[in-house]
Simulated assay, not measured.
Amino acid sequence: MLSALEVITTVVVGLMVGVEFSVAFVINPILSALPDDASQMGHSHGGRMLGAVMPFWYIGSLVLAALWAVAGWHHHGTGLVITAAALLIVSVIMSLLLLVPINNRNKAWTPENRPEDWKEQLNRWDRWHYVRVAVIVGAFTLLVTALV
């Protein structure tokens, strides 16, 4: 049972890291290179689409890591799993306080109603997202290390 939980947690967190890495280093640079209207509409659509899924993914990853820490309390690597869970908590807090407010505004924008500083707001989101990606990569690395 513990082995299955370890594998499931690592895969779920690993997939989340892959998606968020792709957003940071592939999708957003592509969208930002498009003409303004297309760029803004693409960011807005991405914000709606991923904004609907990612809260469950982040919280689910945290719950899985917490379950692993509790179930494997007396096993080797539990400290690493607890530290990974703490990093996932940091990522959730960052999301709620820094990224979600910008995303909530962005997903409602259209070329007709976007604010003058929409690019600056998206750039701020990107900067915080890079930090969040680093945090979840750290959590994933700790989980993988705990497996070995």
Rank of each mutant, 00 (worst) to 15 (best):
G47H: 03
A134E: 08
A139I: 00
L98D: 12
L96Y: 12
V100Q: 07
T9W: 03
G51H: 00
A85E: 04
I30Q: 13
V19M: 07
L64E: 04
S3M: 13
D37Y: 02
P111S: 03
L143H: 03
E20G: 06
A66M: 13
D36N: 12
G14D: 01
E20I: 01
A84C: 04
W128D: 11
D117L: 06
S91A: 15
A134P: 00
L5N: 01
A85R: 03
V144Y: 08
L2Y: 15
I30P: 06
W57L: 10
A86W: 04
S32H: 12
L142S: 04
Q121C: 08
V26C: 12
L67M: 11
N28Y: 11
P115C: 08
R132E: 01
V144G: 01
W118T: 01
D117W: 02
H76A: 15
E6D: 12
H43W: 10
G14M: 02
H129W: 03
T78S: 10
I8G: 06
A146W: 00
S39L: 00
L31D: 07
H43V: 03
T9L: 03
G42C: 09
V135S: 00
P115I: 09
S44M: 03
S61L: 05
R132F: 08
P29S: 10
L50V: 09
M49K: 11
F21H: 10
S61T: 01
I8K: 05
T78N: 15
W68G: 06
L122F: 10
E112G: 03
N106H: 13
H75V: 11
G77Q: 01
G60V: 03
I27A: 15
M49I: 14
K107G: 00
L34A: 13
V19E: 05
G72Q: 04
T10I: 06
D126N: 15
A134Q: 08
